[in-house]
Design a protein around this nucleic acid. Structure first.
Length: 570
RNA sequence: GGGCCUGUAGCUCAAUUGGUUAGAGCAGAGCGCUCAUAACGCUUUGGUUGGGGGUUCGAGUCCCUCCGGGCCUACCA
């Protein structure tokens, strides 16, 4: 039995996430966590809301709430939706937790002692009307290059030229529109990532099986231009982790907080501490996952994220971990995903374009979305959600291939043999099927272990299809007339097959799997290590219930209505 | 501008890393079955692998070039 630490990228707090966010990290991470648990491994699966930064402050200001209240409310909302999608986190934490405050300050202190943090004084734009420093992209003005009037301080969207905020003509605050701006000096801490460049390079070069998407992004940042740049890790904000050196004050940094990208990955660790506290466990319980000298050397740590998060997970966070000089666990495998597009364009939070997590669950149960999203996960390139594709996948894969199999078998049995598993000896057809399933199961397991999500889904579907092929060839409805014993054997195997399907499908469609197991009155849910034994688990005479329709079909007019409803302006 | 990824059947995707005749699912066509959610099974149509050039005994795969799509480019997270 192995120990596997799994983290999903932290969703940002300012609103409800769309299906693209979901499929980019949390959902595949859940698939992997569920599978690994099912195989008997010890899993700690963590996620949390990422709550600091300017956007959170602005979102709170917009609703008129104190930012702490706003974050608490949205954390509760995201938690509820995570449960709705059956995301099986051991802990869904918060980057604003006391544990993360302490740990973030601890790392900063260690990095300072190691000479990896430097104080730098720089000039930034301050807005008197807003009473705050403005990040570059929150300053708007006329582009000196092309004359576009709504250019942002970091880049002009019109001519794509990169800008400095002081380049802008007639600059104004993007928050209030105020032109009462001034350039002020302010002191910030920089993480000297450049000093760790060699170590990071070696580390990345030492990985052999990481996705190209992950390593190519890391290499680009390591080698682009003058190489890896140092990064400012503090901000002039009120909401965040106050800057301290461990437990000591940091002279000259009063009133400043750590940059959200410094404290967010540290929350992966702090979240484990939150988990331990919630479980009433001592610190040793989480440290054995994170401190290599306390057991974490045996842990395999896998991170899931969208491609936009890769630089922070391959570079900044490892600098924090390695630079601390302490024995923290470093990630073993990074699975990165591309983007999911929506019906010919991008999902857009601001325009309300696409389907958001809350809306998805209002329309259909979690399993429908889980299946479609996972079987179309954007692994090799960006992928696209269309309603036609969603409808056809759900109707065909879930309703026809899997759901209908359960119906036809249980209903046939009820009408011919009653609601209990019939007697019957397995013959050549059954043995051939078992052999085929064993081969396919091995392939399915291989794909899941390699986190090849789409390939795993395709193989699972093929396993469902194999049941229909077998049943069609065995034709118990015909055999029943001349050779009822043969028909009984076919049905006995088919009922066992439903149980088998429930067990192996559970990581993808947990609710349907539970319904199937409940209907079969088969509460034990051990992974079918031995296919032949698994298909004999339900003995003759074992009573079962005919379940309701497992998956309903999506009708054309519904699909058309949803297509219209989610086209924009939520 | 620079870098990376990508382009394969009407649609969504594969192709053991250069090796027989490029494969699946959906959609389409035909046949079978009647247990089942008008479900299932079998057979089948469909491709100059974006265009052009090159390397090689052999290219979807490697190189060059052009065209299209996407992402990143470090103070949004």
């Amino acid at each position: 039995m192995a120990r596997i630490l799994i983290t999903s990228a932290l969703p940002y707090i300012n609103g409800i996430k769309h299906l693209g966010n979901l499929v980019g990290s949390q959902l595949p991470a859940d698939l992997y966590a569920r599978y690994m648990r099912a195989r008997g491994h010890e899993v700690l699966f963590l996620c949390a809301t990422d709550e600091h930064g300017t956007p959170a402050e602005l979102a709170a200001a917009k609703t008129g709430e104190p930012v702490a209240d706003y974050c608490a409310r949205l954390h509760a909302e995201q938690s509820r939706l995570a449960e709705g999608f059956r995301l099986s986190f051991d802990k869904y934490g918060r980057s604003s937790s006391p544990q993360n405050h302490a740990l973030t300050q601890h790392f900063a202190g260690r990095l300072w002692e190691a000479g990896l943090i430097e104080e730098r004084t720089e000039s930034q734009v301050y807005s008197n009307a807003d009473g705050r420093f403005l990040p570059d992209r929150y300053i708007e003005g006329t582009c000196p290059n092309c004359g576009y009037e709504r250019a942002r301080g970091d880049q002009c969207e019109n001519c794509t030229k990169q800008l400095d905020p002081t380049d802008l003509i007639d600059p104004r605050s993007a928050i209030s529109g105020s032109t009462d701006l001034e350039v002020r000096e302010t002191k910030h801490l920089y993480l000297l990532q450049s000093k760790m460049r060699g170590a990071l390079n070696d580390w990345i070069d030492g990985t052999t099986d990481w996705p190209i998407l992950t390593t190519s992004i890391a290499r680009k940042w390591l080698n682009d231009g003058e190489g890896l740049q140092d990064r400012g890790i503090t901000r002039d904000l009120s909401w965040g982790v106050p800057v301290r050196r461990g437990t000591e004050p940091w002279p000259g940094m009063e009133g400043k907080v750590f940059y959200v990208w410094f404290d967010a990955p540290i929350e992966y660790i702090a979240c484990a501490a939150e988990w331990a506290e919630e479980q009433g466990l001592p610190d040793a319980a989480w440290e054995r996952w994170w401190r290599t000298e306390r057991g974490a050397d045996d842990v395999r740590y896998v991170q899931f994220m969208g491609k936009d998060n890769v630089p922070f997970h391959t570079l900044s966070f490892p600098v924090t971990i390695l630079g601390s000089g302490e024995d923290w666990k470093l990630v073993d495998y990074i699975k990165a995903f591309n983007y999911l597009n929506y019906d010919g364009g991008q999902f857009s939070t601001s325009q309300g374009r696409g389907v958001f997590m809350d809306q998805a669950l209002e329309i259909l149960p979690a399993d429908y979305w889980r299946w479609w999203l996972l079987s179309h996960a954007p692994e090799t390139g960006d992928s696209e959600f269309t309603w036609e594709n969603f409808q056809s996948s759900v109707n065909k894969d879930l309703a026809d291939v899997l759901g209908n199999f359960v119906s036809r078998v249980t209903k046939f049995c009820r009408s011919k043999f009653g609601e209990a598993v019939p007697e019957g000896e397995y013959g050549a057809a059954e043995e051939a099927l078992i052999e085929d399933l064993a081969r396919r199961l091995a392939a399915y397991q291989g794909h899941l272990e390699a986190i090849e999500v789409r390939k795993a889904a395709a193989e699972l579907r093929a396993i469902w299809v194999a049941g229909n092929e077998y049943l069609q060839a065995a034709a118990p409805w015909a055999a029943f007339k001349e050779d009822p014993a043969r028909a009984a054997a076919t049905i006995r195997l088919s009922l066992n097959l439903i149980r088998f399907y429930a067990l192996i499908s559970r990581p993808f469609v947990p609710d349907a799997a539970d319904i199937m197991l409940r209907a079969l009155r088969a509460p034990d849910a051990e992974w079918p290590e031995d296919v032949s034994a698994a298909l004999r688990a339900l003995p003759a005479g074992h009573a079962f219930d005919v379940p309701d329709v497992l998956f309903r079909k999506i009708a054309d007019d519904e699909r058309a209505e949803w297509q219209q409803r989610f086209s924009g302006d939520r």
